[in-house]
Design a protein around this nucleic acid. Sequence first.
DNA 1: CGTTATCTTGACTGAAATCAATCCCGGTGG
DNA 2: CCACCGGGATTGATTTCAGTCAAGATAACG
Lengths: 250, 250
Amino acid sequence: MEKINSGPKRTHCIDCPLRRKSHFRDLNEEELAFVDGFKVGELSADPGATIFSQGTNSAHIYTILDGAAFRFKILEDGRRQILNYVFPGDMVGLQSFLMGEMQYSVESLSNLRLCVFERGRMMTLFEKHPSLAYDVTWLAAREERMLDENLLSVGRRTALERIAYFLAFLYRRAMAVGLADGTRLDLPITQRHVADTLGLSLVHTNKTLRRLTDRGLARWRDSSCEVLDPDGLQELAGWEGLSDTPRPFI
Amino acid sequence: MEKINSGPKRTHCIDCPLRRKSHFRDLNEEELAFVDGFKVGELSADPGATIFSQGTNSAHIYTILDGAAFRFKILEDGRRQILNYVFPGDMVGLQSFLMGEMQYSVESLSNLRLCVFERGRMMTLFEKHPSLAYDVTWLAAREERMLDENLLSVGRRTALERIAYFLAFLYRRAMAVGLADGTRLDLPITQRHVADTLGLSLVHTNKTLRRLTDRGLARWRDSSCEVLDPDGLQELAGWEGLSDTPRPFI
DNA sequence: CGTTATCTTGACTGAAATCAATCCCGGTGG
DNA sequence: CCACCGGGATTGATTTCAGTCAAGATAACG
């Protein structure tokens, strides 16, 4: 079922499809050349594959090229908390470079393609390319910002507000990287994922989702969801939305 | 009541009291000289003072020299979620440097002394001192790691486990920087803070705390708390604890 | 076709929220 | 000196939101 294929480097950074999206801030030629050398390969994974495992030490850092995945932690008895989602242009595994052991796991949601970087060469990036080091830090700060908002939701929003926030959040992020067209999220996400992201039970998630459907804000269709009124959802959740200034990626 | 005093630079980095603590990884002379020039002053604040305010743009970045504070977000109707605590050696405000507007607030818990850095000069740090840039990123990754664990607590642990986790967490951090002696936390923390950190109501926090007291794990005394059995609390929460390798600070 | 995963609903239970008093203690000012 | 006040901690009674249990419905799949 799960399958991970490590292949040779297929795409050169010059031809990186992400460069063409207006959502991203492009690199200059010199940076591009460095990153291209920094990249040691590509990895592709089927849905449900484990990319990183809590408690292990990885020699690699990844950037998502295509598809989506999620970061999560589990307690001994199996309770799972999804921490955040990773989309094209996002980096995962920085923690293992900086602090050794991973304290979370990553699993692919859809078919995934990743750029592979060697963690041992990361230090060179800091030494030779301050602008890229800055970008890495920027990405870390962005992750922190998303986690802050998530924590606010799980800690202080009601079930209805939480789901409203989360669907709007996913929709905005997916839109930005082309993983949603129109109202439909192009991700095989289940209600189990929603529940585990928001600290709710599956049943209660389902019932609360129905209330959103009744209000015409969102709808569930074959293992994916349709976000009919993102503004309405944000309003309901009291969420400001994401900044839409172009962001860096490596 | 609240008071913030901006004073001249008092302590030179050479004499920084944090350098002497084994918890921290010290800087070399060259780095020290740079940071000393980077520091533009010191700030002291009474308990309850607002250091940063959600929605504003700050020209400064701070490192805690002494005392403790906390980061939080509030919803329009006043619901508050405490995101994390900041202790000596921790940096706050990096987000404003990297991404503009602050999306959280910071309030002092005890008497606070902060080193003030100018955000405009941060870029120079990345350009001239890769090792310090690395440290900044390291601190960001550490914050992310703490937020991950917090999110797991709030989302998936029971009230009893949450409080056990949180008291052990605070105790370990306070111990590492000398803000706890023996069992007693040297911070004026209230049960309101605990409740707002863990997404619980004040009343339920109080009742759950009683259960911990009955088990002899912790105890509340005049606006502060005593952590009698940190290992027992960690065990109860199913928490691994914090890494105790020396950490950088700036 | 069974089989398995996901979604859906209803009935019941339970953990945590809310409401409402008290209590305690350290100011503060008459 | 002592009454008054306010912030925090406590406790009991009640309510409610969300969890658990249970049973189907639906649909993709080998």
